[in-house]
Design a binder for these strands. Structure first.
Lengths: 244, 244
DNA sequence: ATCAAGTTCGACCGATCGGTCCAACTCTTA
DNA sequence: TAAGAGTTGGACCGATCGGTCGAACTTGAT
Protein backbone atom coordinates (compact mmCIF):
# COMPACT_ATOMS: atom_id res chain seq x y z
CA UNK A 1 0.00 0.00 0.00
CA UNK A 2 1.28 3.39 -0.97
CA UNK A 3 0.76 5.64 2.03
CA UNK A 4 2.02 8.72 0.21
CA UNK A 5 -1.42 9.31 -1.22
CA UNK A 6 -2.66 10.49 2.12
CA UNK A 7 -0.13 13.31 2.41
CA UNK A 8 -0.33 16.93 1.38
CA UNK A 9 2.57 17.20 -0.98
CA UNK A 10 2.75 20.94 -0.91
CA UNK A 11 3.40 20.79 2.80
CA UNK A 12 5.85 17.94 2.44
CA UNK A 13 7.85 20.05 0.07
CA UNK A 14 8.43 22.61 2.78
CA UNK A 15 9.36 19.90 5.23
CA UNK A 16 11.63 18.42 2.64
CA UNK A 17 13.55 21.64 2.21
CA UNK A 18 14.24 21.69 5.90
CA UNK A 19 15.12 18.19 6.99
CA UNK A 20 15.13 15.77 4.13
CA UNK A 21 17.45 12.81 4.37
CA UNK A 22 18.10 10.91 1.16
CA UNK A 23 17.10 7.27 0.91
CA UNK A 24 16.22 4.53 -1.52
CA UNK A 25 12.85 5.16 -3.10
CA UNK A 26 13.15 8.76 -2.19
CA UNK A 27 14.22 10.23 -5.49
CA UNK A 28 11.02 9.17 -7.11
CA UNK A 29 8.88 10.72 -4.43
CA UNK A 30 10.89 13.90 -4.55
CA UNK A 31 10.21 14.20 -8.24
CA UNK A 32 6.52 13.82 -7.59
CA UNK A 33 6.59 16.34 -4.80
CA UNK A 34 8.04 19.13 -6.89
CA UNK A 35 6.06 18.21 -9.97
CA UNK A 36 4.19 21.46 -10.27
CA UNK A 37 7.48 23.33 -10.41
CA UNK A 38 8.57 21.39 -13.46
CA UNK A 39 5.66 22.72 -15.45
CA UNK A 40 6.94 24.56 -18.51
CA UNK A 41 7.32 28.27 -17.71
CA UNK A 42 5.14 29.53 -20.53
CA UNK A 43 2.34 27.12 -19.73
CA UNK A 44 2.64 27.86 -16.03
CA UNK A 45 2.33 31.57 -16.72
CA UNK A 46 -0.71 31.13 -18.92
CA UNK A 47 -2.33 28.96 -16.29
CA UNK A 48 -1.59 31.36 -13.45
CA UNK A 49 -2.91 34.28 -15.47
CA UNK A 50 -6.14 32.49 -16.19
CA UNK A 51 -6.41 31.46 -12.55
CA UNK A 52 -5.85 34.98 -11.24
CA UNK A 53 -8.45 36.38 -13.63
CA UNK A 54 -11.07 33.84 -12.69
CA UNK A 55 -10.43 33.88 -8.94
CA UNK A 56 -10.34 37.68 -8.88
CA UNK A 57 -13.56 38.00 -10.78
CA UNK A 58 -15.63 35.34 -9.07
CA UNK A 59 -13.93 34.28 -5.85
CA UNK A 60 -12.84 30.77 -5.02
CA UNK A 61 -16.20 29.04 -4.73
CA UNK A 62 -17.81 30.55 -7.79
CA UNK A 63 -14.69 30.31 -9.92
CA UNK A 64 -14.85 27.51 -12.44
CA UNK A 65 -11.83 25.26 -12.60
CA UNK A 66 -13.06 24.15 -16.00
CA UNK A 67 -13.06 27.72 -17.25
CA UNK A 68 -9.60 28.40 -15.92
CA UNK A 69 -8.32 25.36 -17.75
CA UNK A 70 -10.15 26.37 -20.90
CA UNK A 71 -8.86 29.95 -20.75
CA UNK A 72 -5.29 28.80 -20.16
CA UNK A 73 -5.37 26.84 -23.40
CA UNK A 74 -3.99 23.77 -21.65
CA UNK A 75 -5.78 20.48 -21.57
CA UNK A 76 -7.57 19.13 -18.56
CA UNK A 77 -5.19 16.23 -18.24
CA UNK A 78 -2.16 18.48 -18.17
CA UNK A 79 -3.52 20.80 -15.51
CA UNK A 80 -4.63 17.90 -13.34
CA UNK A 81 -1.24 16.34 -13.84
CA UNK A 82 0.48 19.28 -12.17
CA UNK A 83 -2.21 20.37 -9.73
CA UNK A 84 -4.13 17.85 -7.69
CA UNK A 85 -7.32 19.88 -7.65
CA UNK A 86 -8.92 23.31 -7.55
CA UNK A 87 -7.79 23.84 -3.96
CA UNK A 88 -4.22 23.19 -4.92
CA UNK A 89 -4.22 25.60 -7.83
CA UNK A 90 -5.84 28.27 -5.69
CA UNK A 91 -3.31 27.82 -2.91
CA UNK A 92 -0.46 28.14 -5.37
CA UNK A 93 -2.03 31.20 -6.97
CA UNK A 94 -2.44 32.88 -3.60
CA UNK A 95 1.06 31.92 -2.57
CA UNK A 96 2.51 33.60 -5.66
CA UNK A 97 0.43 36.73 -5.17
CA UNK A 98 1.41 37.00 -1.52
CA UNK A 99 5.06 36.67 -2.41
CA UNK A 100 4.73 39.44 -4.98
CA UNK A 101 2.97 41.58 -2.38
CA UNK A 102 5.69 41.03 0.20
CA UNK A 103 8.28 41.92 -2.40
CA UNK A 104 6.52 45.24 -3.06
CA UNK A 105 6.29 45.99 0.65
CA UNK A 106 9.96 45.23 1.20
CA UNK A 107 11.54 45.88 4.55
CA UNK A 108 10.05 48.19 7.12
CA UNK A 109 11.15 48.70 10.69
CA UNK A 110 8.57 48.69 13.46
CA UNK A 111 8.34 52.09 15.19
CA UNK A 112 9.70 52.52 18.71
CA UNK A 113 7.89 55.71 19.67
CA UNK A 114 4.52 57.32 19.22
CA UNK A 115 6.10 59.89 16.96
CA UNK A 116 7.48 57.30 14.56
CA UNK A 117 4.25 55.35 14.46
CA UNK A 118 2.28 57.32 11.90
CA UNK A 119 5.27 57.85 9.67
CA UNK A 120 5.74 54.11 9.45
CA UNK A 121 2.02 53.56 8.90
CA UNK A 122 2.04 56.13 6.10
CA UNK A 123 4.98 54.45 4.42
CA UNK A 124 3.27 51.08 4.66
CA UNK A 125 0.00 52.41 3.29
CA UNK A 126 1.81 53.90 0.34
CA UNK A 127 3.59 50.69 -0.54
CA UNK A 128 0.54 48.48 -0.03
CA UNK A 129 -1.65 50.70 -2.14
CA UNK A 130 0.98 50.83 -4.83
CA UNK A 131 0.81 47.07 -5.04
CA UNK A 132 -2.95 47.03 -5.31
CA UNK A 133 -3.04 49.70 -7.96
CA UNK A 134 -0.29 48.11 -10.02
CA UNK A 135 -1.72 44.62 -9.67
CA UNK A 136 -5.48 45.04 -9.68
CA UNK A 137 -6.45 41.43 -10.30
CA UNK A 138 -4.01 39.79 -7.90
CA UNK A 139 -5.03 42.55 -5.52
CA UNK A 140 -8.63 41.51 -5.71
CA UNK A 141 -7.73 37.91 -5.00
CA UNK A 142 -5.88 39.06 -1.89
CA UNK A 143 -8.72 41.34 -0.88
CA UNK A 144 -11.21 38.54 -1.04
CA UNK A 145 -8.99 36.30 1.04
CA UNK A 146 -9.54 37.61 4.52
CA UNK A 147 -13.30 37.41 4.65
CA UNK A 148 -14.83 35.82 1.60
CA UNK A 149 -12.62 32.83 1.11
CA UNK A 150 -12.36 29.75 3.27
CA UNK A 151 -8.88 28.96 4.54
CA UNK A 152 -9.30 25.34 3.66
CA UNK A 153 -5.74 24.48 4.43
CA UNK A 154 -2.81 25.59 6.53
CA UNK A 155 -0.69 26.33 3.51
CA UNK A 156 -3.14 28.94 2.32
CA UNK A 157 -3.63 30.41 5.77
CA UNK A 158 0.12 30.72 6.25
CA UNK A 159 0.54 32.52 2.95
CA UNK A 160 -2.08 35.07 3.95
CA UNK A 161 -0.67 35.48 7.44
CA UNK A 162 2.79 36.10 6.09
CA UNK A 163 1.41 38.76 3.76
CA UNK A 164 -0.42 40.61 6.50
CA UNK A 165 2.06 40.05 9.27
CA UNK A 166 3.67 43.45 9.17
CA UNK A 167 0.33 45.17 9.50
CA UNK A 168 -0.57 42.97 12.44
CA UNK A 169 2.75 43.60 14.10
CA UNK A 170 2.43 47.30 13.46
CA UNK A 171 -0.94 47.51 15.16
CA UNK A 172 0.21 45.40 18.08
CA UNK A 173 3.30 47.58 18.47
CA UNK A 174 1.16 50.68 18.23
CA UNK A 175 -0.90 49.43 21.12
CA UNK A 176 2.26 48.78 23.14
CA UNK A 177 3.64 52.25 22.68
CA UNK A 178 0.31 53.99 23.13
CA UNK A 179 -0.22 55.14 19.58
CA UNK A 180 -3.19 52.84 19.02
CA UNK A 181 -6.29 52.38 21.16
CA UNK A 182 -6.30 49.38 23.47
CA UNK A 183 -10.03 48.85 23.83
CA UNK A 184 -10.23 46.65 20.74
CA UNK A 185 -8.15 43.55 20.02
CA UNK A 186 -5.64 44.11 17.25
CA UNK A 187 -7.38 41.54 15.06
CA UNK A 188 -10.50 43.66 15.08
CA UNK A 189 -8.52 46.80 14.41
CA UNK A 190 -6.83 45.05 11.54
CA UNK A 191 -10.15 43.98 10.06
CA UNK A 192 -11.53 47.49 10.44
CA UNK A 193 -8.64 48.97 8.49
CA UNK A 194 -8.98 46.26 5.93
CA UNK A 195 -12.72 46.76 5.49
CA UNK A 196 -12.22 50.50 5.08
CA UNK A 197 -9.60 49.81 2.47
CA UNK A 198 -12.05 47.72 0.49
CA UNK A 199 -14.72 50.38 0.51
CA UNK A 200 -12.37 53.20 -0.36
CA UNK A 201 -10.62 51.26 -3.09
CA UNK A 202 -13.84 50.30 -4.79
CA UNK A 203 -15.30 53.79 -4.42
CA UNK A 204 -12.26 55.86 -5.28
CA UNK A 205 -10.14 53.71 -7.54
CA UNK A 206 -12.46 51.43 -9.44
CA UNK A 207 -14.60 53.39 -11.81
CA UNK A 208 -16.12 51.09 -14.36
CA UNK A 209 -17.90 53.76 -16.35
CA UNK A 210 -14.93 55.79 -17.38
CA UNK A 211 -11.65 54.75 -18.91
CA UNK A 212 -9.26 56.83 -16.90
CA UNK A 213 -6.21 58.73 -18.06
CA UNK A 214 -2.93 58.16 -16.34
CA UNK A 215 -2.98 61.43 -14.45
CA UNK A 216 -6.46 60.78 -13.20
CA UNK A 217 -5.45 57.36 -11.95
CA UNK A 218 -2.48 58.80 -10.12
CA UNK A 219 -4.64 61.47 -8.55
CA UNK A 220 -7.14 58.90 -7.36
CA UNK A 221 -4.50 56.70 -5.86
CA UNK A 222 -3.10 59.75 -4.11
CA UNK A 223 -6.52 60.55 -2.71
CA UNK A 224 -7.04 56.95 -1.71
CA UNK A 225 -3.78 56.87 0.22
CA UNK A 226 -4.44 60.10 2.04
CA UNK A 227 -7.97 59.07 2.92
CA UNK A 228 -6.82 55.69 4.18
CA UNK A 229 -4.27 57.36 6.34
CA UNK A 230 -6.72 59.89 7.67
CA UNK A 231 -9.35 57.31 8.51
CA UNK A 232 -6.81 54.97 10.08
CA UNK A 233 -5.63 57.76 12.33
CA UNK A 234 -9.15 58.68 13.32
CA UNK A 235 -10.09 55.13 14.15
CA UNK A 236 -6.91 54.00 15.84
CA UNK A 237 -6.01 56.98 17.98
CA UNK A 238 -6.65 56.28 21.67
CA UNK A 239 -9.53 58.18 23.21
CA UNK A 240 -7.47 60.19 25.68
CA UNK A 241 -5.14 61.48 22.97
CA UNK A 242 -7.92 62.55 20.64
CA UNK A 243 -9.49 64.99 23.02
CA UNK A 244 -6.35 66.83 24.03
CA UNK B 1 -49.67 35.79 -28.51
CA UNK B 2 -49.72 36.28 -24.77
CA UNK B 3 -47.55 39.28 -24.07
CA UNK B 4 -47.91 38.95 -20.31
CA UNK B 5 -45.07 36.47 -20.22
CA UNK B 6 -42.63 39.27 -20.89
CA UNK B 7 -43.68 41.27 -17.86
CA UNK B 8 -42.40 41.28 -14.32
CA UNK B 9 -45.49 40.46 -12.38
CA UNK B 10 -44.16 41.61 -9.07
CA UNK B 11 -43.75 45.07 -10.53
CA UNK B 12 -47.11 44.95 -12.22
CA UNK B 13 -48.68 44.26 -8.89
CA UNK B 14 -47.48 47.60 -7.59
CA UNK B 15 -48.67 49.33 -10.72
CA UNK B 16 -51.93 47.52 -10.43
CA UNK B 17 -52.55 48.81 -6.93
CA UNK B 18 -52.19 52.32 -8.23
CA UNK B 19 -53.99 52.55 -11.52
CA UNK B 20 -55.69 49.34 -12.42
CA UNK B 21 -58.80 49.53 -14.52
CA UNK B 22 -60.97 46.43 -14.62
CA UNK B 23 -61.59 44.74 -17.94
CA UNK B 24 -62.45 41.47 -19.56
CA UNK B 25 -59.54 39.06 -19.24
CA UNK B 26 -58.24 41.07 -16.41
CA UNK B 27 -59.55 39.11 -13.51
CA UNK B 28 -57.60 36.10 -14.57
CA UNK B 29 -54.41 38.06 -14.86
CA UNK B 30 -54.96 39.67 -11.52
CA UNK B 31 -55.30 36.26 -9.91
CA UNK B 32 -52.01 35.26 -11.44
CA UNK B 33 -50.32 38.42 -10.33
CA UNK B 34 -51.08 37.96 -6.68
CA UNK B 35 -50.65 34.22 -6.78
CA UNK B 36 -47.79 34.08 -4.33
CA UNK B 37 -49.90 35.82 -1.73
CA UNK B 38 -52.50 33.11 -1.87
CA UNK B 39 -49.99 30.53 -0.73
CA UNK B 40 -51.17 28.89 2.47
CA UNK B 41 -49.77 30.79 5.46
CA UNK B 42 -48.14 27.80 7.11
CA UNK B 43 -46.48 26.67 3.91
CA UNK B 44 -45.42 30.21 3.13
CA UNK B 45 -43.80 30.53 6.53
CA UNK B 46 -41.95 27.25 6.18
CA UNK B 47 -40.70 28.27 2.76
CA UNK B 48 -39.57 31.70 3.89
CA UNK B 49 -37.80 30.24 6.90
CA UNK B 50 -35.91 27.79 4.73
CA UNK B 51 -35.10 30.57 2.27
CA UNK B 52 -33.79 32.91 4.94
CA UNK B 53 -31.61 30.16 6.40
CA UNK B 54 -30.12 29.20 3.08
CA UNK B 55 -29.62 32.73 1.76
CA UNK B 56 -28.14 33.88 5.06
CA UNK B 57 -25.73 31.01 5.21
CA UNK B 58 -24.54 30.88 1.64
CA UNK B 59 -25.55 34.08 -0.15
CA UNK B 60 -27.73 34.25 -3.23
CA UNK B 61 -25.43 32.66 -5.79
CA UNK B 62 -24.27 29.78 -3.67
CA UNK B 63 -27.67 29.14 -2.14
CA UNK B 64 -29.38 26.10 -3.58
CA UNK B 65 -32.97 26.56 -4.61
CA UNK B 66 -33.30 22.80 -4.53
CA UNK B 67 -32.16 22.70 -0.92
CA UNK B 68 -34.53 25.47 0.09
CA UNK B 69 -37.40 23.54 -1.45
CA UNK B 70 -36.27 20.35 0.20
CA UNK B 71 -35.89 22.01 3.61
CA UNK B 72 -39.28 23.65 3.36
CA UNK B 73 -40.92 20.26 2.94
CA UNK B 74 -42.90 21.49 -0.05
CA UNK B 75 -42.67 19.92 -3.44
CA UNK B 76 -40.86 21.43 -6.36
CA UNK B 77 -44.05 21.87 -8.32
CA UNK B 78 -45.69 23.79 -5.51
CA UNK B 79 -42.81 26.19 -4.98
CA UNK B 80 -42.43 26.83 -8.70
CA UNK B 81 -46.16 27.36 -8.90
CA UNK B 82 -45.97 30.32 -6.53
CA UNK B 83 -42.50 31.62 -7.34
CA UNK B 84 -41.29 31.89 -10.91
CA UNK B 85 -37.70 31.18 -10.06
CA UNK B 86 -34.87 31.58 -7.57
CA UNK B 87 -34.64 35.31 -8.26
CA UNK B 88 -38.28 35.76 -7.45
CA UNK B 89 -38.11 33.91 -4.15
CA UNK B 90 -35.01 35.86 -3.18
CA UNK B 91 -36.63 39.17 -4.00
CA UNK B 92 -39.66 38.28 -1.91
CA UNK B 93 -37.47 37.11 0.96
CA UNK B 94 -35.51 40.35 0.92
CA UNK B 95 -38.68 42.37 0.64
CA UNK B 96 -40.08 40.77 3.78
CA UNK B 97 -36.87 41.22 5.70
CA UNK B 98 -36.61 44.87 4.73
CA UNK B 99 -40.17 45.47 5.83
CA UNK B 100 -39.46 43.90 9.19
CA UNK B 101 -36.34 46.05 9.49
CA UNK B 102 -38.25 49.23 8.71
CA UNK B 103 -40.85 48.27 11.26
CA UNK B 104 -38.16 47.94 13.93
CA UNK B 105 -36.63 51.28 12.98
CA UNK B 106 -39.99 53.02 13.10
CA UNK B 107 -40.18 56.77 12.69
CA UNK B 108 -37.25 59.06 13.21
CA UNK B 109 -37.03 62.75 12.46
CA UNK B 110 -34.01 64.09 10.60
CA UNK B 111 -31.94 66.47 12.76
CA UNK B 112 -31.99 70.20 12.05
CA UNK B 113 -28.87 71.22 13.90
CA UNK B 114 -25.40 69.92 14.57
CA UNK B 115 -26.34 69.36 18.16
CA UNK B 116 -29.25 67.09 17.33
CA UNK B 117 -27.26 65.12 14.80
CA UNK B 118 -25.45 62.65 17.03
CA UNK B 119 -28.47 62.11 19.24
CA UNK B 120 -30.45 61.04 16.20
CA UNK B 121 -27.60 58.88 14.95
CA UNK B 122 -27.33 57.21 18.34
CA UNK B 123 -31.03 56.45 18.38
CA UNK B 124 -30.85 54.99 14.89
CA UNK B 125 -27.83 52.85 15.73
CA UNK B 126 -29.62 51.46 18.75
CA UNK B 127 -32.70 50.51 16.79
CA UNK B 128 -30.79 49.07 13.85
CA UNK B 129 -28.56 46.99 16.04
CA UNK B 130 -31.53 45.75 17.98
CA UNK B 131 -32.96 44.42 14.75
CA UNK B 132 -29.76 42.66 13.78
CA UNK B 133 -29.30 41.08 17.18
CA UNK B 134 -32.91 39.94 17.41
CA UNK B 135 -32.99 38.65 13.83
CA UNK B 136 -29.56 37.26 13.14
CA UNK B 137 -30.36 35.29 9.99
CA UNK B 138 -32.51 37.92 8.25
CA UNK B 139 -29.84 40.35 9.38
CA UNK B 140 -27.18 38.42 7.53
CA UNK B 141 -29.25 38.40 4.38
CA UNK B 142 -29.55 42.18 4.62
CA UNK B 143 -25.88 42.57 5.40
CA UNK B 144 -24.89 40.62 2.34
CA UNK B 145 -27.15 42.70 0.15
CA UNK B 146 -25.21 45.86 -0.32
CA UNK B 147 -21.96 44.39 -1.56
CA UNK B 148 -22.10 40.67 -2.12
CA UNK B 149 -25.38 40.29 -3.90
CA UNK B 150 -26.27 41.37 -7.39
CA UNK B 151 -29.27 43.69 -7.65
CA UNK B 152 -30.63 41.74 -10.53
CA UNK B 153 -33.89 43.58 -10.60
CA UNK B 154 -35.40 46.91 -9.66
CA UNK B 155 -37.77 45.37 -7.20
CA UNK B 156 -34.89 44.08 -5.14
CA UNK B 157 -32.94 47.29 -5.40
CA UNK B 158 -35.92 49.32 -4.29
CA UNK B 159 -36.46 47.14 -1.25
CA UNK B 160 -32.88 47.66 -0.20
CA UNK B 161 -32.98 51.37 -0.87
CA UNK B 162 -36.10 51.79 1.18
CA UNK B 163 -34.48 49.94 4.06
CA UNK B 164 -31.36 52.09 4.04
CA UNK B 165 -32.99 55.35 3.09
CA UNK B 166 -33.04 56.89 6.53
CA UNK B 167 -29.33 56.27 6.99
CA UNK B 168 -28.64 57.82 3.59
CA UNK B 169 -30.83 60.81 4.37
CA UNK B 170 -29.22 61.18 7.75
CA UNK B 171 -25.74 61.32 6.29
CA UNK B 172 -26.80 63.75 3.58
CA UNK B 173 -28.50 65.98 6.16
CA UNK B 174 -25.41 65.75 8.35
CA UNK B 175 -23.35 67.06 5.47
CA UNK B 176 -25.80 69.92 4.94
CA UNK B 177 -25.72 71.06 8.52
CA UNK B 178 -21.98 70.60 8.90
CA UNK B 179 -22.05 67.64 11.25
CA UNK B 180 -20.54 65.28 8.69
CA UNK B 181 -17.45 65.71 6.53
CA UNK B 182 -18.01 66.83 2.97
CA UNK B 183 -14.90 65.45 1.31
CA UNK B 184 -16.49 62.07 0.66
CA UNK B 185 -19.76 61.37 -1.15
CA UNK B 186 -22.48 60.18 1.17
CA UNK B 187 -22.61 56.81 -0.58
CA UNK B 188 -19.03 56.18 0.39
CA UNK B 189 -19.65 57.34 3.92
CA UNK B 190 -22.61 55.01 4.08
CA UNK B 191 -20.57 52.07 2.87
CA UNK B 192 -17.83 52.85 5.37
CA UNK B 193 -20.27 52.80 8.27
CA UNK B 194 -21.77 49.64 6.92
CA UNK B 195 -18.42 47.89 6.50
CA UNK B 196 -17.47 48.84 10.04
CA UNK B 197 -20.74 47.43 11.27
CA UNK B 198 -19.99 44.12 9.61
CA UNK B 199 -16.58 43.83 11.20
CA UNK B 200 -17.73 44.87 14.65
CA UNK B 201 -20.77 42.65 14.59
CA UNK B 202 -18.82 39.58 13.60
CA UNK B 203 -16.04 40.34 16.07
CA UNK B 204 -18.07 41.44 19.04
CA UNK B 205 -21.41 39.73 18.73
CA UNK B 206 -20.83 36.47 16.94
CA UNK B 207 -18.78 34.16 19.05
CA UNK B 208 -19.07 30.66 17.76
CA UNK B 209 -16.93 29.04 20.42
CA UNK B 210 -19.02 29.94 23.43
CA UNK B 211 -22.72 29.60 24.04
CA UNK B 212 -23.46 32.93 25.60
CA UNK B 213 -25.67 33.73 28.54
CA UNK B 214 -28.32 36.37 28.20
CA UNK B 215 -26.44 38.95 30.24
CA UNK B 216 -23.32 38.42 28.20
CA UNK B 217 -25.24 38.90 24.98
CA UNK B 218 -26.76 42.13 26.26
CA UNK B 219 -23.36 43.37 27.34
CA UNK B 220 -21.90 42.63 23.94
CA UNK B 221 -24.67 44.37 22.10
CA UNK B 222 -24.19 47.34 24.40
CA UNK B 223 -20.48 47.38 23.58
CA UNK B 224 -21.21 46.99 19.89
CA UNK B 225 -23.58 49.97 19.88
CA UNK B 226 -21.18 52.20 21.75
CA UNK B 227 -18.30 51.22 19.53
CA UNK B 228 -20.31 51.79 16.37
CA UNK B 229 -21.26 55.20 17.60
CA UNK B 230 -17.73 56.09 18.59
CA UNK B 231 -16.26 54.97 15.28
CA UNK B 232 -19.00 56.68 13.29
CA UNK B 233 -18.29 59.94 15.08
CA UNK B 234 -14.57 59.61 14.52
CA UNK B 235 -14.94 58.88 10.83
CA UNK B 236 -17.70 61.32 10.00
CA UNK B 237 -16.68 64.42 11.91
CA UNK B 238 -15.40 67.14 9.57
CA UNK B 239 -11.70 67.86 9.81
CA UNK B 240 -12.01 71.42 11.07
CA UNK B 241 -14.29 70.46 13.92
CA UNK B 242 -12.11 67.63 15.14
CA UNK B 243 -9.12 69.79 15.85
CA UNK B 244 -10.87 72.51 17.78
C1' DA C 1 16.58 -0.38 -30.25
C1' DT C 2 14.00 -0.96 -26.29
C1' DC C 3 11.55 0.01 -22.42
C1' DA C 4 9.89 2.73 -18.78
C1' DA C 5 8.90 7.17 -17.07
C1' DG C 6 7.05 11.53 -18.03
C1' DT C 7 3.58 14.05 -20.29
C1' DT C 8 -0.53 15.34 -23.05
C1' DC C 9 -5.15 14.89 -24.40
C1' DG C 10 -10.13 14.84 -24.26
C1' DA C 11 -13.92 11.61 -23.57
C1' DC C 12 -16.23 10.49 -19.78
C1' DC C 13 -18.12 10.24 -14.76
C1' DG C 14 -21.57 11.08 -11.01
C1' DA C 15 -23.47 14.95 -8.55
C1' DT C 16 -25.84 19.00 -8.52
C1' DC C 17 -27.49 23.10 -10.51
C1' DG C 18 -31.98 25.90 -11.86
C1' DG C 19 -35.92 24.84 -14.21
C1' DT C 20 -39.85 22.22 -17.02
C1' DC C 21 -43.68 19.38 -17.57
C1' DC C 22 -47.57 16.74 -16.94
C1' DA C 23 -50.47 13.46 -14.67
C1' DA C 24 -53.28 13.48 -10.83
C1' DC C 25 -55.68 15.44 -7.29
C1' DT C 26 -58.97 19.03 -4.94
C1' DC C 27 -62.03 22.69 -4.92
C1' DT C 28 -65.42 25.86 -6.96
C1' DT C 29 -69.16 26.89 -9.75
C1' DA C 30 -72.97 26.21 -12.97
C1' DT D 1 -72.65 15.98 -11.24
C1' DA D 2 -69.83 17.51 -14.84
C1' DA D 3 -66.53 20.95 -16.22
C1' DG D 4 -62.84 23.68 -15.40
C1' DA D 5 -59.69 26.18 -12.57
C1' DG D 6 -56.45 25.76 -8.82
C1' DT D 7 -52.98 23.00 -6.78
C1' DT D 8 -49.66 19.26 -5.83
C1' DG D 9 -45.99 15.91 -6.59
C1' DG D 10 -41.95 14.37 -8.60
C1' DA D 11 -39.81 12.39 -12.80
C1' DC D 12 -37.17 14.49 -15.90
C1' DC D 13 -34.19 18.03 -18.62
C1' DG D 14 -29.77 20.13 -20.34
C1' DA D 15 -25.86 22.52 -18.47
C1' DT D 16 -22.17 22.69 -15.57
C1' DC D 17 -19.60 21.37 -11.65
C1' DG D 18 -14.91 19.14 -9.96
C1' DG D 19 -12.57 15.23 -11.05
C1' DT D 20 -10.96 10.42 -13.36
C1' DC D 21 -8.99 7.56 -16.70
C1' DG D 22 -6.63 5.33 -20.27
C1' DA D 23 -4.78 5.68 -24.81
C1' DA D 24 -1.19 7.93 -27.24
C1' DC D 25 2.78 10.48 -27.58
C1' DT D 26 7.67 12.23 -26.05
C1' DT D 27 11.86 11.78 -23.67
C1' DG D 28 15.85 9.76 -21.61
C1' DA D 29 18.55 5.98 -19.88
C1' DT D 30 20.49 1.42 -20.89
Amino acid sequence: MDRSVELDFRLIKTQFDLNFVSGNRTRKRMVFIVRQERLDDVKRMRLMEAAVEEFAERGFDAASYNKIIERSGLSKGTVYYYFDNKDSLFATTVEEICQRFLHTIGDLRLPDTKEEYWATAWEYHQRAIRFFSENPLPGRVMFRLSKDEPFFDEYLKNAHERATQFMSDLIARGQEIGAVRNDLPWETVHRLIHAMGRVLSSDIIEDRDVSLENDEIKARIEKFMKMMHDLSKRILTPEEVRHV
